[in-house]
Nucleic acid binder design. Structure first.
Length: 602
RNA sequence: GCCCCUGUAGCUCAAUGGAUAGAGCGCCGGACUUCUAAUCCGACGGUUGUGCGUUCGAAUCGCGCCAGGGGCGCCA
């Protein structure tokens, strides 16, 4: 918000250095001062100048010299336009904002732009976020929820920053895991499916676990391998079913369509609960044939090597193609020796479709951290293949969600289903609301409980660096105090309550009362939102918004605690009402970017 | 064997190469005749895994080591 003033100050500082006969450093950067209750920006430029002197042979102690230069500079430039005070402190040059003047500007800007405050200018690039790609024939667990919530928040953030954004999902409706589940269903469970969308979807997960048990798979075998120690006819039946699916056998395809739809129906409902609207569904099964063609194309281009004549698979020796001596990207396998596709080949086909059919410039994949190496290989192959977009492909890796007793395993049926967590959390929140705010109607109560429980779940997923693993813990998930979504939502509700009681919002007015530290702190925070939103998009980091929203809620709560609004009089009251409205707006916007609802009451 | 990620307060986590490393939880002590106490105020709590290095300045960058997790041609 202060770019223009800071640009002028930069010019002024450069001139000051020049008049002092000192070489200005290349870049003069301004960062918010760390002192709360004041509102300003500081630069470490004097350190750089002093350090340059030291390097050129002058005998100076850098910190002392920086302090000296800052003092001289302060005298030289005076108070730059738009600021009320200049200060040399500890080698830094600090400029303090004319709080009373800019308080009005900040508040008027926020209220004038409303939900668009902080929105970035439209960018020429199209960005696709791929997330919410659960496998069918499983059920949606809390690990999938982390993925979906992270992806949706990222999509909202980049969209807000001005990217032409497409939301894509890539359900895994193809592969051994799917076939195993279909096989067990066909052989042992056909016709026993329960009533109810979620019940039926979850039932597939138990069948899947049962299939693995029947096949006698070891505990430590990965979910979708098939090296069974169970009855050999079972394994043969599964392989036969896989082959028939691949050939397009009508009976197997019918069975597949039916069971697949059960999963997709459940997914649709869960995405609706999460307020996610996917623009494009790519199904893994649909890229199966293109993937085979791509393998052939890559062989023709001399990128891939076909070892099938020798009984081997189709591979790409990436290091060799890059002329690397040491192993880094290693060798990737595209097709099995029997010609069926693997994950990588399908992902290459998917990337090609994104680039060519959807003209995507940037492609972000929200996929768990275990697939990091897969994406390193995939992006490198896209580069070898000649796609310039390869440089703007980004794997947003997130750590997995484990249980206190260890990893979840779909194969063992040992998972915490998202639906169960939602139901349990909702019940708990209803109890809390009945206790804290018994005057709400049942409709209001349930609506608030939905918003608060969904928000609490989302926030715990977003307020941790995506790279870190998290342990799912019921106690913590059901703790709604402190740094959690309900705290932020509560601040929004408080602001709303004040505004509701006040009735009409006062017109813009000049601010004349001496601002309290809590007011300045809140204004400072509000003014930083546009830059913070932009940075979250640049770095693909919803965490930054999660932190910002909490900090803003805390600043507002402190303001609320220390500065009476409705009981203040005249211009002070009007100013504080407008400040409250601005805080409510930015709280709502930052919650929206996190895909968390901002309740009016709770 | 090689590659990637992580290591910060008792616990869970933050922190643009910048000023005194911050929150929440827990513990201890306070504040509801007040715009809803899902709140606030205060106390306690740190050799940022470890050793070198780069820098005016390092939790942040580089190298080594330690610990944990993940990955490495026919699972996804």
């Amino acid at each position: 918000m202060f770019e223009r003033q800071l640009d002028k100050a930069t010019t002024s500082v450069r001139k000051g250095f020049k008049r002092l006969g000192l070489p200005a450093s290349d870049e003069i950067a301004w960062v918010p001062t760390p002192f709360s209750g004041q509102w300003g920006f500081g630069t470490a430029a004097c350190f750089q100048v002093a350090a340059a002197e030291a390097r050129s042979g002058k005998k100076v102690k850098v910190p002392a010299r920086a302090e000296e230069i800052a003092g001289l500079l302060q005298g030289e430039i005076g108070v730059p336009e738009g600021f009320e005070r200049v200060e040399a402190a500890g080698g830094y040059l600090n400029l303090y904002v004319e709080a009373a003047v800019y308080a009005g500007t900040v508040v008027d800007t926020v209220l004038g732009q409303g939900p668009d405050f902080g929105r970035g200018e439209e960018k020429a690039e199209r960005l696709m976020v791929e997330y919410a790609q659960p496998n069918t024939h499983h059920s949606f667990h809390i690990g999938h929820a982390r993925n979906a919530i992270l992806g949706e928040s990222l999509a909202r953030i980049v969209e807000f920053a001005g990217f032409d954004t497409i939301r894509a999902s890539y359900p895994g409706d193809h592969g051994l895991g799917v076939i195993k589940c279909m096989w067990a269903y066909k052989r042992f469970f056909e016709g026993q499916e329960p009533e109810g969308l979620h019940e039926r979807g979850q039932w597939l997960l138990t069948i899947y676990a049962e299939a693995n048990a029947l096949l006698g798979l070891d505990e430590d075998v990965e979910d979708d391998e098939l090296q069974s120690s169970g009855p050999s006819e079972y394994e043969a039946e599964v392989r036969e079913m896989y082959r028939k699916w691949d050939e397009g056998d009508s009976e197997v395809r019918e069975l597949w369509k039916k069971t697949r739809q059960w999963s997709l129906d459940e997914l649709e409902d869960i995405l609706k609960m999460l307020d996610i609207e996917i623009d494009v569904f790519f199904y893994e099964s649909e890229v199966n044939e293109p993937a085979k063609a791509i393998a052939e194309e890559l062989i023709q281009l001399g990128i891939a090597e076909d070892e099938r004549p020798q009984g081997g698979p189709v591979i790409i020796k990436i290091d060799e193609k890059l002329g690397l001596k040491s192993e880094k990207y290693r060798t990737a396998v595209l097709l099995r020796s029997d010609g069926t596709t693997l994950y990588l080949a399908k992902d290459l086909a998917l990337a090609k479709a994104k680039f060519e059919n959807y003209q995507v410039d940037r492609s972000v994949y929200v996929v768990d951290v275990r697939q990091s190496f897969h994406f390193v290989q995939a992006f490198k192959i896209l580069e070898l293949w000649g796609f310039p977009q390869a440089a703007k492909c980004y794997h947003l890796a997130y750590g997995f969600v484990t249980l206190p007793e260890g990893a979840m395993s779909a194969r063992r049926g040992n998972v915490i289903l998202y639906k169960d967590v939602v139901d349990e959390t909702f019940k708990r929140v209803v109890e809390i609301i009945e206790e804290k705010n018994p005057d709400l109607s049942p409709e209001q109560r349930d609506e608030a409980a939905r918003q608060v429980s969904m928000g609490a779940l989302a926030y715990t997923m977003l307020a941790v660096d995506n790279r870190k693993d998290t342990i799912y813990n019921w106690d913590r998930a059901l703790d709604f105090e402190g740094q959690a979504a309900p705290y932020i939502q509560y601040a929004h509700v408080r602001a709303n309550s004040i505004l509701r009681r006040a009735g009409v919002l006062p017109k813009p007015l000049a601010i004349e009362h001496g601002l309290a530290p809590a007011e300045i702190q809140l204004l400072d925070r509000l003014s930083r939102f546009p830059l913070e939103a932009q940075r979250a998009a640049d770095e693909y980091k919803p965490l930054l918004i999660a932190n910002y929203a909490y900090d803003l809620a805390r600043d507002f709560t402190e303001f609320y605690q220390h500065c009476p609004v409705l009981k203040a009089e005249g211009a002070v009251r009007d100013t504080r009402l407008r400040l409250t409205a601005a805080a409510k707006q930015v709280l709502a916007t930052s919650l929206r970017l996190l895909s968390i609802k901002a309740p009016e009451v709770m």
